[in-house]
């Protein structure tokens, strides 16, 4: 199977920047392979130094093209850049066509870039379960900037905030009604707005609308979300977009908001991991554990209600600790 057949990748290989080991390690994380747990435990202490920038927004607004342009900009400044681009898995077949790589046009000889496509594998919220740990592996491998593209969707995907320290919401001119429906989500998530395809008519009025929207928000924790016009055709606005991202990162340091945000993300990750484990154990148990099966029988026959059953399960778990 991917990542196991050829010997497990080691922490040493990852730290040395071995690209094949890195690629296999990401697969191991995606597949929930046991060697991934060991690897991430070993690498964790030296990760977390690198900022992760997220890009979200509706289908086809140009997230991949923008990331490609930013990669070129960053390579021009000699920064080592990694990209993780997430596309949806089909709920029917479980398969996926991962198409973000089409926009990636770095020369094959450029060793300072790493691009990985990733299927969401049923995770909600626009990123995959493995995206955060993939970013940690890339961090450990020495990449200095990590850019994450979420699944393009009708809605703004919130889960990127659990991974990225700066989230860029990418929109295009004439999203009028769509922006209306996105409003609440936009407030919650955008640290920077990019109005891409600004070569098309309507870009200036889109910018005005968003500036107004940002002002209405009153500035989250004192940050006024900037609006940057970009086009990947020139390209134009790319250095300005990066500067806005860096300005938000500087704000996080200046305002002291970074450690709090990081703690919030980590707390959420821990709770999420516990929830997933308990979920899997209980779901299994309700079928295979005789005591749990009896409890489920009694709920089904209306002798016990679901709330009481849940209470009993929680109490039983606590006692068994």
């Amino acid at each position: 199977m991917t990542g196991t057949r050829r010997g497990a990748p080691t922490a040493r290989q990852i730290r040395a920047g071995d690209r094949r080991a890195l690629a296999r390690a990401i697969s191991a994380v995606e597949n929930g392979a046991p060697e991934a747990d060991a690897l991430l435990k070993e690498l964790y202490p030296t990760t977390g130094r690198v900022r992760v920038v997220g890009f979200t927004g509706p289908l086809g607004v140009g997230k991949s093209s923008l990331i490609n342009a930013l990669v070129a900009h960053l390579r021009g400044r000699d920064r080592r850049v990694a990209v993780v681009a997430v596309d949806p898995s089909s709920p029917f077949s479980g398969g996926s066509v991962l198409g973000d790589r089409i926009r990636f046009d770095r020369p094959a000889s450029d060793e300072g870039v790493f691009f990985r496509s990733m299927a969401s594998r049923g995770a909600a919220g626009g990123v995959a379960a493995a995206t955060r740990d993939a970013a940690r592996l890339l961090d450990a491998a020495g990449f200095e900037e990590i850019l994450v593209e979420t699944v393009g969707s009708g809605q703004v995907d919130i889960a990127i905030r659990d991974i990225a320290s700066t989230s860029v919401v990418v929109l295009v001119p004439h999203l009028g009604d769509e922006v209306q429906t996105l409003k609440a989500g936009l407030f919650e998530i955008a640290d920077v707005f990019a109005v891409n395809k600004s070569d098309l008519p309507g870009a200036d009025s889109a910018r005005r609308d968003l500036v107004e929207l940002a002002a209405l928000g009153g500035g989250r924790d004192g940050w006024r979300t900037p609006v940057v016009l970009t086009s990947t055709l020139g390209p134009t606005g790319i250095p300005e977009l990066w500067d806005a991202i860096v300005a938000h990162e500087a704000f996080l340091d200046r305002s002291g908001g970074r450690p709090a945000a990081e703690r919030r993300r980590l707390a959420k990750e821990i709770v999420g991991r516990v929830r997933d484990r308990v979920d899997a154990e209980l779901t299994d148990g309700l079928e295979s554990d005789p005591a749990l099966r009896r409890l489920l029988d009694r709920v089904a026959s209306r002798d016990v209600d679901p709330r009481t059953a849940a209470e009993q399960l929680l109490r039983a778990r606590r006692r068994s600790r």
């Binding site: 089909s90 077949s93 398969g95 996926s96 066509v97 790589r101 089409i102």
Partner: peptide, 19 residues
């Protein structure tokens, strides 16, 4: 291949062998 449950990275047109 997607419909058969595979994850297909589509790299698109005009790829060099190196890419």
């Amino acid at each position: 291949l997607r419909d058969a449950g595979m994850e297909v990275v589509y790299a698109g047109l005009r790829q060099t062998p190196e890419e």
